[in-house]
Nucleic acid binder design. Structure first.
Lengths: 197, 197
DNA sequence: CCACATTGTTGGCGTTGCATACATTGTTAT
DNA sequence: ATAACAATGTATGCAACGCCAACAATGTGG
């Protein structure tokens, strides 16, 4: 047990919290362990007790991101209609909302450079989220609203479209006027692509 | 027109070339101006004559990436059949091939942090590429193989799917066995979604 | 109360990005 | 030619960074 703090209160949590704030405000490149320590009011080397190096902190941030992403997606499915269309739309919207609200974090989550051990944990977190997604598709199939076939193979193009749209939005590659109807168009296309027959 | 070099031979080009090599080999985080200068054999401050800071070099790298991406996509359309399906498939394959062959570079190209002026140049480069893409869709419409509608709105979901699949592949979020049929499935889905019905 | 592990501090090392001042080389006008 | 000038590369220094090792303080369990 004992996750009670020793000296500071709860350095690891506060490190993550502050790190995410500066991530949001100034981008992932501007993240400095020393500055973090300074802001919190501990010595420059203190963070290293909890994150053995900078990459480890970034990994933890990404992992945390996946978990919150997971929750946001799950939450989007509550209190929404049962049709595949409605559920997909809600999930897509949650996806993109999370993406724009956490642009730099998403960059981090889907970036290439993660340590090997971290990659496993991240893979697991990503897997948990993909389970939700596959569940949605599978249920659509059960209801006859989604065409038949191996669920992962039906899901992949849908996943790609959502992720791609979110990524394009975040990286600012979309003309602003498109954000008005872009997601609607993507969801509509996905529905057309998924439909049975 | 004097693009002949002064002292070194052609520092800017060699900087870009070496930078891209280490980008490919060790990731964008491991890129150091000083190390670059050291490798090339010039003084630590020499690069600053051509790229006022590190970000400027990264921007140039991204811009260069878009140009080569542009070429690769254009090349993919030569000597391929005229049907929309074939052309789309060729373009998708060029997209993904470029992505996996230049993972870190793609990360850079679509990353969030670009200086404002660079963003304009990058936007222009991305625009040139999107023109090709829109052309493909428009031709598909002309041939009656793609459903009608404003070309950008028809294109966006297609673009999103391709980009998303490429990004997922690059960031290693796809189970390896999926890479075998993943792209085929995505292209097939896109075709289904685009069809005139 | 005493080992002992956990957490935080201090100080230092090598590296980095960047700015400034200076030296060298090419260009161009006279 | 040669003198002004711009373009390019060098030398040096600074503050900040990540990381490491040695040490101090604090809590935990026998």
């Amino acid at each position: 047990m004992k996750n009670r703090p020793y000296h500071h209160g709860d350095l690891p949590s506060e490190l993550l919290a502050r790190a995410e704030r500066t991530l949001r405000e100034k981008g992932s490149g501007a993240l400095s362990l020393r500055e973090l320590a300074r802001d919190i009011g501990v010595s420059p080397a203190a963070p290293s007790r909890h994150f053995k190096n900078k990459q480890a902190l970034l990994d933890a941030l990404a992992l945390n991101g996946f978990e919150r992403f997971d929750e946001a997606v799950a939450a989007s499915q509550e209190g929404v209609g049962e049709s595949f269309g409605e559920r997909l739309d809600a999930m897509a919207r949650a996806y993109v909302d999370f993406a724009v609200a956490n642009a730099a974090l998403l960059d981090l989550m889907f970036s290439v450079k993660h340590s090997l051990e971290a990659s496993e944990a991240l893979g697991a977190a990503a897997h948990r989220w993909s389970e939700q997604f596959l569940g949605l598709i599978a249920e659509g199939q059960r209801r006859g609203e989604v065409r038949k076939g191996p669920v992962e193979r039906v899901a992949l193009p849908v996943f790609a479209a959502l992720h791609g749209y979110a990524d394009l939005t975040v990286s600012g590659m979309l003309p602003p006027e498109m954000t008005a109807y872009g997601l609607d168009d993507v969801v509509a296309s996905v529905l057309r692509q998924c439909g049975p027959e």
